[in-house]
Design a binder for these strands. Structure first.
Lengths: 262, 262
DNA sequence: ACCTGGCATGTAGCATGCTGCGTGTCAACG
DNA sequence: CGTTGACACGCAGCATGCTACATGCCAGGT
């Protein structure tokens, strides 16, 4: 129903509020704008907001029961992230899921995340190994419960832990942004052809290599994992639109066979 | 004086406007918000807005003679780009120029721009070579005139042309964002130790390799150029803050010795 | 039947009012 | 002289009024 997190918790009550249940800033995430960003992300993810369709800040604000300002700011942020596009005096459009776009994102992720994995392995302390182990276990548990959201959280945390250890905050932020883009674009990040357990299994070689301190092996394992995921998502996106997956897109994903050394 | 582009040209006249010259949307760039973004970028670049200082949307809006809304939106975008940081109920602060940050940006640029150069060379048509040649000539001319802004524009165009030919729009956007960050952070992107002519000369090997169709050579030349620039900027930033350049930061820039193949 | 022009409708974008909150200040008290 | 507490001030953030503009629709003309 496209709602923004609205616990009874009191927050700042601002300008006049006529009726209906009010939506306030909640302790954890503060800003209403951020909540709207999340709500819209989820709405796109769940298919409630469909690509190609025209929407308006006006109506969306009404549905969410917040004013237009935070909605507008949220949409501007999403527009910058490439998820929607404003059309002058018409509204904004949720962009169609383009296999090419996904291929580009994974091309980038490989370019960044593989070297980051190498760096992380090289500089890994005991904390990293433990964190990765925990996240992997959590992924397995979530897979057993078929709890996809929880699974995704830990999958994400696994990658984030490696990125954080890679000692380049900017890189971590960029990759996080890229991942957000695909998570929102992909109706289901875990597509039909892989079970959650399979995805979890793909992380094992990465953890093993990190534990062994073998940077090259870790990088290779990460590359295999990300490239595999990218290839599947490209194919999935292609299947949703035109039928066949463009070989050029698949090639783009796999083209990032970079070897980085220090 | 921190102004936003305000030609006499008429545009949409909105809400009540008391006095003073009005600032309107101009044909070229439309949105006031964007104009404010540019104005603030330049103000930071020129040192008019100093790092560490506290500013407020309120006052800035007054100085620019626009309302708070576009200023706020502009600052939010800059905050996302990492140039400023909002402090709750206090204002926003222009972030101090951190050598580490610059090193990270160049680490990223190397990771992305070197493979992109390889790709571009491989897929280069005659248009690319011509465009690069033109930009390089324009850079030389601007260097002769000591016209730094014009030089920067063509330098940027040179890199953009390569990125565009790299056939990954997303990558081009990310790199453009990274460059914007450093351009704004660096008081002067062309630092004291290199003349404009020297910088132009660094682009020659890149063009030559692209002309020759030698992808590896082009990539190597691009790496040398970007790494060199990064190293100088890191040193310059370090000199402005604490005295010595942290070897770790320099190392970070040079660590991106990646070799990518197809 | 086919243009054509004016008008109603809905929109993004800007201006501005309003509120709770963090912070500095200064006075009263120990 | 040090400590504390109330108060004023300025801020970000949200709500909302307002305007120009793009588009679709329908009437009137050809």
């Amino acid at each position: 129903m496209l709602r923004v997190n609205a616990p009874p918790g009191r927050g700042r009550a601002h300008g006049p509020r006529e009726g209906g249940q009010t939506v306030r800033a909640v302790a954890g995430t503060s800003s209403l704008t951020e909540q709207v960003v999340e709500a819209v992300r989820e709405a796109i993810h769940s298919g409630e907001l469909r690509p190609g369709e025209l929407y308006s800040v006006y109506r969306l604000a009404g549905q969410l029961n917040v004013s237009r300002t935070p909605v507008r700011e949220a949409m501007l942020r999403l527009a910058e992230a490439g998820l929607v596009r404003f059309e002058r005096s018409r509204g904004f459009r949720v962009l169609r899921r383009d296999p090419r776009e996904i291929a580009e994102v994974f091309h980038l992720r490989l370019l960044l995340e593989v070297p980051a994995t190498r760096r992380a392995t090289r500089h890994a302390g005991p904390g990293l190994a433990r964190a990765l182990h925990e996240e992997l276990e959590a992924m397995r548990a979530a897979a057993a419960d078929h709890d996809e959201p929880r699974f995704m959280r830990h999958d994400r945390a696994f990658h984030d832990a490696i990125l954080a250890a890679g000692a380049n905050r900017r890189l971590a932020e960029v990759v996080a942004g890229l991942r957000d883009a695909t998570v929102t674009l992909g109706a289901s990040t875990v597509d039909r052809s892989r079970s959650l357990a399979d995805v979890a299994a793909e992380h094992e070689p990465i953890l093993a290599a990190v534990l062994a301190g073998d940077a090259d092996a870790a990088a290779t394992a990460m590359r295999a994992h990300v490239a595999h995921t990218g290839e599947l998502l490209v194919a999935q996106a292609a299947a949703e639109n035109g039928r066949p997956a463009d070989p050029a897109d698949i090639a783009l994903v796999h083209e990032a066979l970079n070897e980085s050394t220090t």
